[in-house]
C-alpha cells in the first residue's frame, strides 16, 4: 500500500474517518453506536461523563476526545466496558434526583435512553439526595438543578452560539453546580429567552420549557419508539 487508509477498527469493524475527526464522531457517522452522554455533535467535546470510554490500542480514553488515527484498534462493545458504563450511569443516577416518573423529559432523556440501552436496572449505590432549589423565576423556562449532570452543554451553547453567557459551573467536587449569570443568581433576571438555543440543548430534564408538559404522552416519545442505538443507526442511514 502506498498510502495509509484513513480507517480504524471498532470492535473489529472497519470505520472510515475524515482527518481531524474523533473516534466517536467517525463511529456515529458510520452509524455505529458508542454509548455517550455529555457529547453533542454541534459542540466542542466535553469529556466529563466518561461513558464513551473505549480502549484504544490497549489504553483507555474518551472516544469523544481522542482523534481517529489510521490503524487504531478500538474496543468499545465489550462486557467489561459496558459493565463499567453501567456502573458509571448508576453513579450519575444516585448523585442527582433522577425521578423519571415525575420528569417531563422522560422518554426524550438521553441519560435515561443510555441507561435503557445498557440495561441498567437500578441505581445500586446509596442516593445522595441533593437539596438544590428549583429556579422557576423565568416566565418560559424552569431549571431543576437536581437533574443537572454538569455536562455544560447549556454553558457552551449560551456562550458560543447565543452569545449570552447565561450559565457556568461553580463549586468543586460533589459541590459542583450550575450557576446563573445575574446578580440574584436567578434565570428570570437574565436576558435568557426561549428562542435561545441553550434553552433546548439539555440532554436531561434540568432545563425545561414551561407549559408544554406532556403534550406528547409517555410511551410515545423519542426513545419509547426506538432505542438510542437504533436511532443513531437510522440517523446515519438518513445522512448518507
Amino acid at each position: 500500500m502506498s498510502e495509509i487508509a484513513n480507517t480504524f477498527t471498532l470492535d473489529g469493524q472497519i470505520v472510515q474517518f475524515t482527518p481531524g475527526q474523533t473516534i466517536l464522531e467517525a463511529a456515529l457517522d458510520a452509524g455505529l453506536y458508542i454509548p455517550h452522554l455529555c457529547f453533542n455533535p454541534e459542540l466542542k467535546p466535553h469529556g466529563s461523563c466518561k461513558l464513551c470510554t473505549v480502549i484504544v490500542n490497549g489504553r483507555s480514553g474518551s472516544a469523544c476526545t481522542i482523534k481517529a488515527m489510521p490503524g487504531q484498534e478500538v474496543q468499545s462493545s465489550t462486557p467489561e466496558l459496558d459493565g463499567r458504563r453501567r456502573l458509571q450511569l448508576q453513579m450519575i443516577f444516585v448523585e442527582g434526583n433522577h425521578f423519571c416518573p415525575g420528569c417531563e423529559k422522560s422518554g426524550n432523556c438521553k441519560l435515561q435512553a443510555v441507561a435503557y440501552d445498557l440495561e441498567m436496572l437500578n441505581p445500586h449505590f446509596p442516593h445522595f439526595f441533593p437539596e438544590r432549589p428549583i429556579d422557576a423565576s423565568h416566565p418560559d423556562v424552569m431549571i431543576d438543578f437536581n437533574r443537572c449532570i454538569l455536562c455544560e452543554q447549556c454553558v457552551q451553547t449560551s456562550r458560543d452560539v447565543d452569545g449570552k453567557n447565561i450559565f457556568a459551573l461553580a463549586g468543586r467536587g460533589m459541590k459542583s453546580h450550575l450557576v446563573i449569570n445575574s446578580p440574584s443568581g436567578k434565570l428570570g433576571d437574565t436576558d435568557f429567552a426561549l428562542t435561545d438555543k441553550a434553552a433546548h440543548v439539555c440532554p436531561v430534564g434540568a432545563i425545561l420549557e414551561k407549559r408544554v408538559g406532556y403534550a406528547k404522552p409517555i410511551g410515545e416519545r423519542k426513545y419509547d419508539e426506538q432505542t438510542i442505538r437504533e436511532q443513531i443507526a437510522a440517523d446515519a442511514e438518513g445522512g448518507l
Binding site: N97, P101, G102, N122, H127, F129, E131
Partner: peptide, 10 residues
C-alpha cells in the same frame, strides 16, 4: 428501586 415519588420529600 430508587425511592420514587415518596422520596421527593427528601
Amino acid at each position: 428501586v430508587a425511592g420514587g415519588l415518596p422520596a421527593q420529600r427528601n
